[in-house]
Every structure is written in structure tokens, then in C-alpha cells.
Computed example of a mutant assay.
Amino acid sequence: MSNNNLNGDIPQSITSLLKLISLNLSRNSFTGVLPSNFGQLEMLESLDLSRNQISGRIPPSFSSLHYLSVLDLSHNNLSGRIPLSTQLQTFNASAFMGNLGLCGPPLTPECPGDGATQDPAVPNGDGGDKTKQEDDSLISFGFYVSMVLGLIIGFWGVFGTLLLKSSWRYAYFRYLDNIKDRIM
């Protein structure tokens, strides 16, 4: 439906087309904001909304579009942070160009206010992104817990077995002696 002089808001009902694979609404006169539940279109592989007058933020649900391989949101009036996801950051910056208010990877490394030193419990001036802060602390905590558990289980899995099983312990030290003899 590209280049058809369509106008108005992008209909919310478009997000109920759950099996939709490709959507091209470029070069129209759409205004308003992107539907917040765009992430329901999980099968979407290609999305082109370029050269409209869409404003507002890119909804966080865009991070659910895991099969998206073609994206063009360029030349609109979008603003705010590009939602963080493994998918959206893989696109070239040209997919977002012409949206002067957009920031974040892949356009810029940071958004205004990201570099400010601030107490993590206090939201920043752009409305705060408490969910992102909670996710970062949860990821960090989970990483450290799994690292410690892996170290403990790995260490005791190897050395505990050698400590308890004398036949394995003798075989292991014989193996080390053979290696030492080959080297020297």
C-alpha cells in the first residue's frame, strides 16, 4: 500500500493481522503515533513506514519483532530512544535517518542525559526508564550468581571426583607424569 496518498493514523487493527509477513506503508501521509502493540506481529519480516509524518516514540513492543530482516522508519517525525533489542540494533542507521529526535544505537551511542552521573534509583529527566535499570541490575545479578555457581560446580565436579575416587586420581596423576616426561 505504498505511495497511495493514504492519511490519518495507522489503524490499530493492523496489529491484529498476526500472520502478516510484510507491511509497506511508505510514501503516504500517515500521521499520529505508531500502534503500541506492534510487537504482536511476531511473524513480520519486512516493515517499511518511511516517508510519512508519523510522530512520537518507537513502541517498546518493536523489540518483539524477532524475524524482522528489513526495516525502514526513515523520514518521519519519530523521537526518543530506539528500543534496545538484539534485532533493532542490527539495522543500518539509514533505517532511522530523517527522524531528528531519535537517539540510541544504531544512530548514536547514547541519548541526551545518558552520560549524566546520577543515582540509579532516581529516574532521569526524560521520564526515567526504571524498567531498563531494573533489567540491568537483574542481568548483572543473574550473571554473577551463575558465574559463582558454575565455578563451584565445575571445581568440585572435577576435583571432588578426584578426591573421592582413588582409581581416577591415580590415573589422572599418571597422565600428568606422562605429559611431563614427553615435554622434558
Rank of each mutant, 00 (worst) to 15 (best):
G127L: 06
D126K: 13
L44E: 06
I153F: 13
Q40Y: 10
S36A: 08
F91C: 00
L34N: 06
S94W: 03
N77W: 14
E42Y: 09
K180N: 02
K132Y: 14
S140M: 08
N77E: 08
S22Q: 08
S13K: 09
P60H: 09
P83L: 05
S64G: 04
K132L: 07
K130W: 13
L17T: 13
L65I: 11
S26L: 04
D136H: 14
P83F: 10
N77Y: 15
N24L: 03
G160E: 10
Q87N: 05
W168T: 06
F30Q: 07
T117K: 05
P11Q: 06
L49V: 10
D136Q: 12
N77H: 15
L162K: 14
S69E: 06
N24M: 03
G150R: 09
G154E: 05
L102E: 05
Y170D: 01
S2D: 05
T15K: 02
T108Q: 05
H66Q: 09
P105W: 14
L68N: 08
V70C: 00
S85Y: 13
L44V: 08
G127V: 11
Q53A: 01
D48T: 09
F159L: 06
G115S: 09
I82W: 11
G115R: 13
D129T: 12
R182M: 01
F173H: 10
Q89P: 00
N124F: 11
F38M: 04
V148W: 14
F38C: 01
N77F: 13
L84S: 09
Y172T: 06
S69A: 06
I14V: 08
T161N: 04
S146V: 14
F143S: 01
L68W: 15
D48Y: 10
R57G: 01
Y170C: 00
P60L: 02
N7L: 04
L138P: 06
G101P: 05
A121E: 06
L6N: 05
L162V: 13
L164W: 14
F173V: 10
N4W: 11
M1V: 12
T15D: 00
G113S: 04
S166W: 14
L100M: 04
S74L: 04
T117Y: 03
S69V: 13
N7Q: 09
M1Q: 08
G160L: 08
N178F: 07
L149N: 08
I179A: 00
H75W: 15
R27L: 03
T86G: 00
L41M: 05
N99I: 05
K180D: 01
T108N: 03
F143V: 07
E110W: 15
L20F: 11
S137K: 15
V33Q: 07
N92Y: 07
G142V: 13
L100C: 00
W168R: 07
N92Q: 04
T86S: 00
K180M: 01
S69T: 15
L71W: 15
S79N: 13
I54E: 01
G128P: 07
F141Y: 11
Y172H: 08
G150W: 13
I82N: 04
N178M: 02
E45I: 07
N4C: 05
S16C: 00
M147K: 15
T161Q: 06
R57I: 10
D119M: 03
M1E: 05
L41C: 02
S55Q: 07
Q87S: 01
L100K: 11
P112T: 13
E134M: 12
S26P: 06
R57V: 10
S63D: 02
G104Y: 12
L73Q: 11
L25T: 10
K165M: 02
